[in-house]
Design a protein around this nucleic acid. Sequence first.
DNA 1: CCGTATCCATTCCGATACTG
DNA 2: CAGTATCGGAATGGATACGG
Lengths: 149, 149
Amino acid sequence: MPGKITLQAEPCPVARALDVIGDRWSLLIVRNAFDGMGRFGDFQKGLGIAKNILSDRLHKLQLQGILEAVPATDGSAYQDYVLTAKGEALFTLIVSLRQWGEEYLFDKNEPRSLLLEKQSGKAIPKMEARSANGRKLNASNTLVRKIDR
Amino acid sequence: MPGKITLQAEPCPVARALDVIGDRWSLLIVRNAFDGMGRFGDFQKGLGIAKNILSDRLHKLQLQGILEAVPATDGSAYQDYVLTAKGEALFTLIVSLRQWGEEYLFDKNEPRSLLLEKQSGKAIPKMEARSANGRKLNASNTLVRKIDR
DNA sequence: CCGTATCCATTCCGATACTG
DNA sequence: CAGTATCGGAATGGATACGG
């Protein structure tokens, strides 16, 4: 009896996170929500996603507490989907994805969308992991301790 | 004629990145590669992934230039799968995933694996996006410029 | 031990029709 | 416009058999 296996019992936070947002569409919906998008039809047209899939993902993201449905601001009978704190916390993840994609998935002069600081209009410097002492970290100077507590 | 649509023509780096590594297993394989794992059987047992799927993902990750197959160090006739520079660059993304998962997907005292700095043995502080001037960034003080160049 | 190939169930996804 | 329902095809995934 095949079928998907849940990773929610895994002790690794990476595995659990991927179980929640590791699919084709969820993070794209979140990305658009960061850009201020909130309406069903805007997600649907903006992403080119099928409506039934969008409906399913919006429900799952609400179940996970990443999005929240609030009454639409335009007075219509419908809803806006807005990020919760848990959803807002995905900002660094989205920026990581964006910066990796920018560096490795585009040809030299290929058109792309850019993330800028509003105040200065300048591009965002590459994020990096640092230790408490400010040392730059990579795989070779870090270590995963298998289990804890 | 249904089926998957490629996002590789998208001008958004987030979309392209998700098209490459936005699935259930690819980043878990990369995570284990960061931990020094390199052999087919180790991935298979360590992840609990079906062998055919693992075989498929290893091929795709090689096609993408994220993993590279090298002769096994133990003198066997087989291969080790090691990260390329493009793959190593996924480190910040994995750390972002891990830190989000740690904060939002575990109960208070639930066992989990932890990422530590080797030298100090201490946990890695939360990564954050900052502007060139050191200002802390979030969705409200950044902006995506639709197209460029 | 390393991987590929095959089988089958489940999931994903796109298209479309439909309700309110 | 917002969302659900249904259909068919494609991709995913687990189990297992098989050859190197």
